[in-house]
Design a protein around this nucleic acid. Structure first.
Lengths: 227, 227
DNA sequence: CTAAACATTTTGTAAATAAAAAAAATATAG
DNA sequence: CTATATTTTTTTTATTTACAAAATGTTTAG
């Protein structure tokens, strides 16, 4: 579960955003803060992965809060939300190292994209295998342009993906070979492997190699859960 | 003309990168700094738009330099370059608000992509029309995926390579024979040798020969950490 | 005393093997 | 009927095992 703090002074908007975030699988809103000072307090006392942070606020605005956080070494990730009117100094905002930047008012679909991307980042950075250029690009350059449809990669079907994902989640402690899973789920090894490969590429599954006595070693897969 | 400063301590690499950058239409390399302190001085006295900044450096490393720049309100943009070996704390590096992140050694094509993207950013942010979500996405989410495809040599597997590399790195002071490593890592001598040979060919491992009392002398391998 | 033959240890290569990856064929949804 | 998801078949590849070749020290014949 990715723990989210929403920082937004308008209670209506905050509530709406909370709904939005909790609508995405794997996310949980821990609390809402209506200004920067309260947010800082909450960051001190709660385990928070991600802050959805509005720039305009009384008391302590979003940009100052973010700078303050970094100064105090709160390394929590941030999605910055800016009203279109304040977007003139966007250049400096982009240098704050946020995970994503949303311009108000944003569509639910755009926020969902941001959260989906963040989930990939979250997983990739936590399964501590050495990181490479491809991973970095996946993390920073998530293509988000066609917001319209949740287009899954070709060759994959959402229903099958869900089935396999559920199976892996149900046995989150075990390492399985594609063969074993295929047998247990009554699907072909090839299909299983294609889905596992996809899940591995987005960091939701981790891959390990088992070297047998002779012959090419087998790939073992396990769900990448981070309690 | 976009004015670039290259910050890189290895003169060969710096020169190469200069060539690369100047090969891209609309870019001009103003100077090269071989450490962070020199870079700061150059930033004070020159008009610079973009810094291609290596993380590893003597005197003042890239990350410290970037933090120092922000503290002093040098709002110059930065493309961060990290060696694969140092990429373990990548999470915090990603929070520094760089324009792009390259992992060494990078292909020319990838750098070109980064510079092409930056040109779009540069222009969008300077024609001060009110900025919208689409622009932000264009700036931050440039799709760059088709470039990165670091294919390993045939017969080698990335996961195995990583395992062996890690072992060698963990025992960076010791000279080991392929046989010994094979035993310790529970892999065959032949496999170990193939990977060590590869690592030797790219200079990551150094080879020495030990003459025993009788019989063919043994090859001893050690991680080359001075590089 | 020298050098060829031998013994010993290790490297390097080829064959065997089992799994992954790719391609082709089939089934199914829309 | 067409596009795409899944299975079956084929090819490729990453490993081990087995063995031949190489590099050295030792022995012994001349």
């Amino acid at each position: 579960m990715i723990k989210v703090l929403i920082v937004e002074d308008d209670p209506m908007v905050a509530h709406l955003n909370k709904k939005y975030v909790e609508n995405v699988e794997g996310y949980q809103v821990v609390d809402i803060a209506n200004n920067g000072e309260k947010a800082l307090k909450l960051l001190r006392t709660n385990k928070i992965d991600l802050v959805v942070l509005d720039v305009y606020m009384p008391k302590l605005d979003g940009i100052s809060l973010l700078k303050e956080m970094r100064k105090r070494f709160f390394m929590t990730d941030v999605i910055l939300v800016t009203a279109a009117k304040e977007a003139d100094n966007i250049d400096s905002v982009l240098k704050l190292g946020a995970v994503d930047y949303l311009i108000k008012p944003f569509e639910y679909e755009r926020l969902k994209k941001a959260l989906d991307s963040y989930k990939i980042r979250y997983n990739l950075l936590r399964n501590n295998t050495p990181i490479n250029q491809e991973d970095i690009d996946k993390i920073t350059k998530q293509n988000v342009m066609e917001v319209s449809k949740d287009k899954l990669e070709k060759g994959l079907h959402n229903k099958t993906l869900e089935r396999i994902r559920n199976f892996m989640r149900a046995n989150r402690e075990c390492f399985y070979s594609a063969e074993e899973i295929a047998k247990k789920m009554d699907l072909s090894r090839v299909t299983i492997r294609r889905y596992l490969e996809y899940l591995t590429s987005i960091g939701e599954i981790i891959l390990e190699i088992e070297y047998g006595s002779v012959g090419r070693p087998t790939h073992l897969y396990k769900y990448n859960y981070t309690k």
